[in-house]
Each structure stands twice: as C-alpha cells, then as structure tokens.
Design a protein around this nucleic acid. Structure first.
Lengths: 176, 176
DNA sequence: GGACACATGTAATACGTTACATGATTTT
DNA sequence: AAAATCATGTAACGTATTACATGTGTCC
C-alpha cells in the first residue's frame, strides 16, 4: 500500500502539480506535461495515467469527494513532497544537468571547421529563441504566478543566458 | 541490420566516447559512464553491454582486427555521430535541461519559511562543491584534453556559476 | 454537423536499473 | 595468498514511449 522505493522525479513533479492545482482530473495533470518546455517532462497519456494509478495505489492521491473523477493529494502525498526537499538531498540533485548541446561538444572534432561554425550558429539561434520563450513565461508569472514559480522561471532564464554566453565563448575559441 | 529508429543520447555518447578512445574494450566504455559526474550518464554494465551489442548489430561498431575483444567504430558509426550534429537538431536539443533544483522550486511553498532558508543554504553549498569539482576537471583538461573537451567543461562551469547566482537571488527574494 | 478539445485508457515494445554471477589478471 | 581491478555478461523488474482505441461535450 505505502511506498517502499524512492519516487521518481516525474512522480514527485506530478504530485507537485496536483498540489498547486487542487482537485483536478488526470487529463489536466497530463496536459501540463504534454506542453512542457522541458523535454524531460514531456510525457503523454501512456506515461501519466499509469503513473497516477501508481500514486493512487501508494495512497499519495485519492479521488476527491467533490464528485466526478477529480483527484487530490492525501496528507501522505503532501508529506511526500516535503520529503523531496528534506530527505532526498543527494549529490545527484546538484549534479550537472543533462545538456545535449554540452554533451555533443565533446565530440565536435568529427565535424569540419565549416560545419563547426554552422553548428554553433544554429545552437546560438535556438538558444536565443528559447530565452525569448522563457522571458515571456516569466512576464506571465510576474502577473499571475506565485513567487516560487517566478523564482523557478528566473532560474530557467539565468541558465539559458549562461548557455548563450558559453556558446559565444566557444565561437571565439574557434575563431582563433 | 542498419538503424531505422533515432539513436538515444546515451548511444550517441557511447559512440562519441569510442571515437575519442579508438579501439577499446566494452569494459573501458562502461568505466567512462560509471564514474560520470552527470547523473543521467551514470550507467552500469546492465545498460552498456546490451547497448554496445545493439550498436554492433546496427553496424555502427565492430570488433577490431587488432586482436582481442577490442571494439572500434565503423564508417557508419562515425557518420552517425556527424548526423547527431547535422540532422537531429530539434527544439528538444535547446530545451531547458532537467534541473531538479529548479523543478523543486515550483513547489517550495509546501515548506515552512525556516525550512525554505535551510533548503536554499544546502543547495548553495552543494553547488559550490560541484563548481570546485568542475573547475578541477577543467584544469586537468587544460593540460591533457583536446580543445573540445575543454569547451564542454567550460560549459559545465558556466552553468554551475549561473545556478549559484540564481540560488543567491532566491535567497534575497525570500529575505524580503 | 463536423471539428476540436476533453477524458481515459490499453498493448507492444524497448530501454535502463539493480542485482546477481563468473572468471582472468594484476597488484599488494 | 588475498584483494582489487579488469572483463563480460544475464535475469528480473519497472518505467517511458508510441501508437491505437474509444467516447463525450462544446463551439462554430
């Protein structure tokens, strides 16, 4: 009934989403993930519905008494989110995140010099576009969101700016 | 025989590792992943050996004629790495990376104000430690590594610095 | 009335993780 | 001689992805 293993990041994020929305349908939770800007969170029905059933079996969420098929957190579910912050703090949480652009950089020597320049150009353009999207969302949060969503989104902006700065540095290094 | 589906990041990274090392044993490839600082790449024997067999079946790597059980890239394998740069450039590659610290921030309102302060403190310390590790590796690359590994590692340093800056900003926001 | 979003799933498949298992070689 | 590292796997399990399937409500 209860949970023995560690919850995955996806499961905890689903719990977090539900804690913000209050009672909502499984479909609403899924919709949040389908349109996520973070590719690792982009999940479809085949992932979310079984995931929610797992959480329900674990007693972390339950059908709301407010009728229909609305789901809501149980006290145990709320506690699971708190424990995400307090107990699960391992080195993995701080470890460098998986940045495909950065990973690929290790192997860029397989390209010709011209291809390298072109690749970095495309990367820079993609990142600038991403930055715009992040900044737009940030503006939205400034009006509507809570301060914590705002903080999180500011993190995305700062990270993207750093990646842009990095690509520019790489371009300079190549020009020498 | 050849590949119809898209190669995973892990598979492509394995190809990249082998392209750098030249002919090497499966164990050597695995060892690179076991001790990775990026948690998403930390994989054991159960992941790498089947993965290498898949690559071999796909004709991307082969046993080296240099005797023993050494593996090396085929021309098709080298081409697969190049295509990683050229054709697979989707929006996903630029998307915000999965940063657990950032994800969690959305849901930090479940904590008490004191817990929030403590959590951010721990996060900051963890990131500072990570930064040190990254900078040490960077110094190593400056002597031994190729310029592309150096660039990649500089990306890790810049990213980590940005995350530290972000956490400090969050701390200031909480103090108000 | 047709299109679209809402709503909920299942089945096949493949992939990653963990744990287990074994043996050779090298180091202390 | 024992311990550690090199070396190569297998088996069980769980989870994510993709594609398929179905039905309702609502808007134009």
């Amino acid at each position: 009934m209860s949970i023995d293993r560690k919850l995955s990041t996806l499961e905890l994020t689903a719990l977090g989403v539900m804690s913000k929305r209050g009672p909502c349908t499984a479909y609403a939770v899924m919709a949040e993930f389908v349109h996520s800007t973070t590719s690792a969170y982009r999940s479809g029905a085949g992932s979310i519905y079984p995931l929610l059933r797992r959480l329900q079996n674990a007693g972390l969420i339950q059908s709301s008494e407010a009728g229909k098929k609305l789901l809501e957190l149980t006290p145990a579910g709320r506690e699971a989110i708190r424990e995400w912050f307090t107990t699960n703090l391992s080195a993995d949480d701080f470890s460098c995140s998986l940045d495909v652009l950065r990973s690929r950089m290790y192997f860029m020597w397989v390209l010709t010099p011209e291809e390298r320049v072109q690749y970095l150009d495309e990367a820079l353009q993609g990142l600038k576009l991403l930055l715009q999207k992040c900044q737009q969302q940030l503006e939205g949060y400034k009006r509507l969101g809570d301060p914590f969503s705002l903080m999180a989104m500011e993190g995305a902006v700062i990270e993207t700016q750093a990646r842009i700065k990095w690509i520019k540095k790489c371009q300079k290094a190549l020009n020498r």
